[in-house]
Simulated scan of single mutants.
Amino acid sequence: MAKFLIADDHPLFREALQGALANHYSDLQLREAEDLDSTLVALQEDDDLDLLLLDLHMPGSGDLYGLIRIREDYPLVPIAIISGTEEPAVVAKCIGFGALGFIPKSLPSLEIAAAIDVILQGDTWVPAEVRGRLAELTNEEQELAKKVADLTPQQYRVLLLLHEGLLNKQIAYQLNITEATVKAHITAIFKKLGVYSRTQAVLLVERLQLEPNKND
C-alpha cells in the first residue's frame, strides 16, 4: 500500500492530486493537511509515510520553514515539494534543505504521478529545465537552517511579523497573545538565531524567503 500525506491549503488542488494518485496507484492510503500545524499533528499521529507532498506557501510554513522544521522533527519522512514555481534558485534551496523532489503544480497529472514514482524508487526528481543548474547550499545557509529548525511554529510566526515591521502590541493582537508572551518569544528567537536586534533577525528571515506567495 502506498501511503501519502498531501499538505496544501488549496482544497481544489488537494482534490485534483488525490484523483491523480488514485488513478495511478491501485492500493492507496491518503491523508490531508491544510497548514503546517495540521501537518505536524498528522505526522505526530503517524509518520510512517511513503511520501509527504508539501506546499511551500501554506499557512504557517513560511517558505522554507515548513520544510526545515519537518526535516528536523521527522528526518526519515520522505518529502517532495509541490509548488507553482520552477525557479532554479528555489528548487536548489528545497533540495538542499532535504526535499527528495520538486514537482511543479503545472504538470499534467500523469507527469506528476511519474515524478512521484521516481522519488519512491529512491531518486531525486526536479524539472528537466533546471537539472544541472542547481547550486549547492553554502555552509552559512546550512547553519542558518539548523538555527531556524530550533524555532517553534509560534516563534516563527512572531519572526515573520517582526519582518513586517509590527510592534510588540500589534504582534500580540495578531496572534491573540499577551505582549509579555511576545517579548518572551522574541528573547527566545534572538537566542536561538544568535542575534541581538530585530534588524539582525529580519535580515536572517529574508534569506529564507523565496518569492512572493503566488500561484501556490
Rank of each mutant, 00 (worst) to 15 (best):
L51P: 05
A113V: 03
A2D: 12
D35C: 08
D123V: 11
L175K: 07
L151W: 09
K93M: 14
A180P: 07
V90A: 12
L56W: 02
F97I: 10
L137M: 11
L161N: 05
L137W: 11
I79L: 07
D123K: 15
V118P: 08
I70K: 02
V90P: 10
R14H: 04
T124E: 04
Y25Q: 07
L107N: 10
E140G: 00
K147W: 00
L107Q: 09
D37Q: 14
E136Q: 14
H163A: 14
K169C: 12
T178P: 05
D8Y: 00
E111T: 08
S38T: 06
P104Q: 02
Q200L: 10
G194Y: 08
T181S: 14
T124N: 04
R71W: 02
N213W: 11
L162I: 07
I70E: 01
S38R: 08
T124S: 06
E143T: 09
A16I: 04
D46R: 02
L30T: 01
E141S: 07
P59F: 02
A114D: 11
A115H: 05
V41I: 13
E179A: 09
Y156L: 12
D55K: 07
A115L: 09
V130N: 04
C94W: 08
I81C: 04
R198E: 14
L67K: 06
L36W: 03
E164A: 07
K191F: 13
L56I: 15
Q170G: 10
T187Y: 12
L21K: 08
L210M: 00
E211A: 10
E143Y: 02
Q154F: 13
Q170N: 10
Y65A: 05
R157T: 10
E111R: 14
T178Y: 06
Q170D: 09
H57A: 13
A42D: 07
T199D: 15
V77N: 03
V130E: 00
